[in-house]
Design a protein around this nucleic acid. Structure first.
Length: 771
DNA sequence: CAGAATGAAAC
DNA sequence: GTTTCATTCTG
């Protein structure tokens, strides 16, 4: 998105201040990253620049605010992502990896299929997360309206909107206050609150932070005791938090040195640092005592930048360009601010009261939502997890950093990393949380291993290379940057990376994990930004907000990362196999041995599959639950869990069905009897109502199980279906066949509960029959 | 910039 | 019920 923002940004920039287009670009990191195949100095540089700039800007909060104000008018926070989008965000890269050739749309389709198939439990995780996200968002933006209200323009060109990107969380730190503020917004439009990008919480976690941390953190420390960092440290001490915090402070230097030597470790270190920084920032914000950090922070950043010779060179620009392209739509704001924001946040610490309010909000949000403890969801975590919670804040922060590293570590050089980790970890007992992450991770790892191991390999290879080759700090940074990306710090980057892999670069590896990165969560610091509030904002609120944002961000990130990421294989198999099984029934998998296409054996099979698939589609996908079999790699719960899933499915039709005829539908090609693809949905309709809504049938099938790779290859699918099932078989007919098959199979192969299947089928049949 | 998907909110 | 928009990114 942001990237889009980048595109958008330009205008904004112009409007707002003609100033630094670059900045925006910089802000973008992610996009930049994407575009830039390599992460190298350039990016780093950019980051730095951003930082600097941001720092500069931020330096003057006022300026920022002003901008924000402008933005604010129109700016709206972006809607929180729904569960599906979260899922997409987390898995898109995987899909792309698997199906490099697919374009995004195709990937989206697959994701939709996955989503449909996804075990309800798993899905619930995303749903919960989305809910939390939304709740938190709403807290932050009380008056927020999804639709801009009639205002015209919602997104309108107003672009002024650059801000738009705000992604978000403008936070109203103080609920009470917020309300007032928020309300205002509503009046005009949805959420004017916006502050667009004040501080860029995004960045906090982001590269800039990291970079800074890495480079300058040290310097800063040295530099000014007064500086925020020092403050932070102090704070940290007070709070006692954080190992992360400490790490942040301490590590940087070490890490850097390490980087030179080893890429991997550094990366981790860096990442950690990044988090640490975040944590620090947060803490700072919390701690009332800190002197004004903002100035410091900015200074520090600038200083750091200066210190680090990385110059931003034009190279940066290129990325920017790319960014711009994407979208303009909304705003750009983020581009600028994001990077900077974090620092800003640091700057001020709010008064206690503010802090309290902030904390309150944060806690509420964090806990409830982000923090996650409140919600039941937790599945991810084993349990006991909660132990840490003593303090909301600290734990959260801590948690984040550590967990991931481990995984990566595994892959990489464990030794070095471990050492580091050990240190960090030792500092804090986060193990519990780690677990949560681990859970997801493990799966990933597993799945990655088989087919995707290469990724990892690449990582190893790549990193070393990068690191190895480069000696200078900058170079290190580059390495770090990559690492970060790989680790998921920057999702977008990762995505780029992935592509790059496909294309030219293969650079960093992506881990699946990456989830929310800065981008995603960038909050606009803005909260502070409220124009009106400025006064207030000036000091406390904003920063607080920022802090909160940062924290929230962290939380989100943490959570997001914790969200399970499923291997494509799994899904594919699932989709295919599952479907088959589904029918077969819960238990016996053996039936369709091969994955999809494999069914060369007999037409019957294929037919069967198809039928099944159809069945699924219709009913669907939603029923995903059924998919019982866990494909190979990972353990999915897909299980058969009969009760819940199915019901669920039944209850809620899934997506596509819901949507009325869309363009897409129209667009969709449906197979004709002869096997050709044709665009006509209408045809289907006659046959069956269900179909009407969606012409799933074969096409879908193809997408789903069979041929994700190329949607286009639909024909291929046909091949699969030997007999050339007519796409349009009547459902009833298919159902019958399926039923027969099932029975047959059930008896034959496994004792599948045909009955159950039959039941399932029943609805379908009925529907058809009705028609 | 459209569009692919799902979902949530607004209208 | 329909429309908007959230994310991502190719064509």
């Amino acid at each position: 998105m942001k990237g889009g923002g980048g595109g958008k940004e330009p205008p904004v920039e112009g409007e707002v201040s003609g100033k630094r287009p670059k900045r925006k670009c910089l802000q973008w990191h992610p996009l930049l990253a994407k575009k830039a195949p390599d992460f190298s100095e350039e990016e780093e540089e950019e980051d730095e620049e951003e930082l600097e700039k941001s720092g500069a800007k931020e330096g003057e909060c006022g300026g920022m605010e002003d901008d924000s104000e402008e933005y604010s008018s129109e700016q709206r926070a972006r809607r929180p992502m729904n569960a599906f989008l979260l899922f997409c965000k987390r898995h898109r890269s995987l899909v792309r990896q698997e199906h490099p050739r697919l374009d995004n749309r195709g990937a989206t389709k697959i994701l939709a299929d996955w989503w449909a198939v996804l075990d309800p439990k798993e899905k619930q995780k995303y749903t919960d997360m989305a809910k939390e996200y939304k709740d938190a968002f709403m807290k932050a933006n009380p008056g927020y309206k999804w639709c801009p209200a009639t205002n015209k323009p919602v997104k309108s060109p107003s672009h002024s909107v650059s801000n738009a990107r705000k992604k978000v969380w403008s936070l109203p730190t103080n609920p009470s206050k917020e309300s007032s503020v928020a309300k205002k917004q509503p009046k005009t439009d949805s959420t004017p609150q916006l502050n667009f990008a004040m501080a860029d919480p995004n960045k906090m976690g982001g590269l800039s932070m990291l970079l800074l941390a890495g480079e300058h953190a040290l310097t800063t420390r040295e530099i000014s005791s007064s500086s925020s960092q020092t403050g932070c440290t102090d704070v940290a001490k007070h709070t006692g938090k954080s190992a992360l915090f400490q790490l942040a402070e301490v590590r940087p230097p070490e890490d850097l040195s390490v980087l030179n030597k080893r890429p991997l470790k550094p990366s981790l270190a860096v990442r950690r640092l990044g988090y640490g920084w975040l944590a620090v920032c947060v803490q700072m914000t919390y701690t009332p005592e800190l002197p004004v950090t903002t100035s410091l922070s900015s200074s520090s950043t600038s200083g750091s930048t200066s210190s680090s010779p990385t110059d931003t060179t034009p190279s940066d620009l290129s990325p920017c360009k790319t960014l711009k392209k994407k979208k303009k739509k909304k705003e750009n704001k983020d581009s600028d601010e994001n990077p900077a924001s974090p620092k800003k946040a640091k700057k001020r610490h709010s008064p206690e009261s503010d802090l309290d309010s902030v904390m309150f909000t944060i806690e509420a949000v964090a806990k409830g939502a982000w923090g996650s403890e409140e919600t039941p969801r937790k599945k991810a975590r084993p349990s006991g997890s909660e132990s840490s919670p003593t303090t909301d804040q600290s734990p959260a922060v801590k948690k984040k950093t550590k967990p991931k590293p481990k995984k990566q570590l595994k892959l990489k050089d464990d030794d070095a990393e471990e050492e580091e980790e050990g240190e960090e970890e030792t500092n804090k007992p986060q193990d519990v949380e780690m677990k949560t992450e681990e859970a997801p991770l493990t799966p990933k790892d597993e799945y990655t291993k088989p087919p995707q191991t290469r990724q990892e390999d690449r990582e190893q290879d790549v990193k070393p290379e990068t690191c190895g080759s480069r000696k200078s700090e900058r170079s290190c940074k580059g390495a770090l940057y990559k690492t970060l990306v790989s680790e998921g710090m920057l999702t977008s980057l990762r995505a780029n990376v992935d592509r790059g892999k496909r294309g030219s670069m293969r650079g960093s590896v992506s881990d699946h994990e990456g989830g929310w990165n800065d981008e995603s969560w960038g909050f606009s610091q803005a909260a502070t930004s409220n124009p009106k509030n400025k006064f207030k904002a000036i000091k406390t609120p904003k920063y607080n907000n920022e802090c909160m944002l940062g924290k929230l961000e962290e939380e989100f990130e943490k959570k997001f990362n914790s969200l399970p990421q499923y291997s494509p294989l799994t899904f594919d198999k699932k989709s295919v196999a599952v479907t088959k099984k589904k029918k077969n029934s819960t238990s016996s998998p053996p039936e369709l041995p091969k994955p999809c296409k494999g069914s060369s054996s007999s037409q019957k099979k294929t037919l069967f599959h198809k039928i099944v698939n159809k069945y699924k589609h219709r009913k669907e996908k939603s029923s995903a639950a059924d998919k019982g079999d866990a494909p190979t790699a990972i353990r999915y719960h897909l299980c058969v869990s009969p009760s819940p899933e199915p019901q669920k499915v039944l209850d809620t039709p899934v997506g596509s069905q819901k949507r009325k005829a869309r363009k897409s539908k129209i667009t969709h090609l449906v197979r004709t009897a002869d096997g050709r693809v044709s665009p006509a949905e209408g045809e289907l309709n006659p046959h069956c109502p269900n179909q009407d809504e969606k012409p799933f049938t074969q096409e879908t099938l193809c997408n789903r199980g069979v041929c994700y790779n190329d949607p286009r290859s639909a024909e291929a699918d046909l091949t699969d279906a030997p007999g050339g099932l007519p796409a349009f078989f009547s459902l009833a007919a298919l159902a019958e066949v399926a039923a027969m098959e099932n029975v047959h199979r059930a008896q034959h192969a496994v004792g599948i509960p045909t009955e159950g299947q039959v039941k399932d089928m029943a609805p379908v049949l009925i529907s058809c029959a009705d028609q």
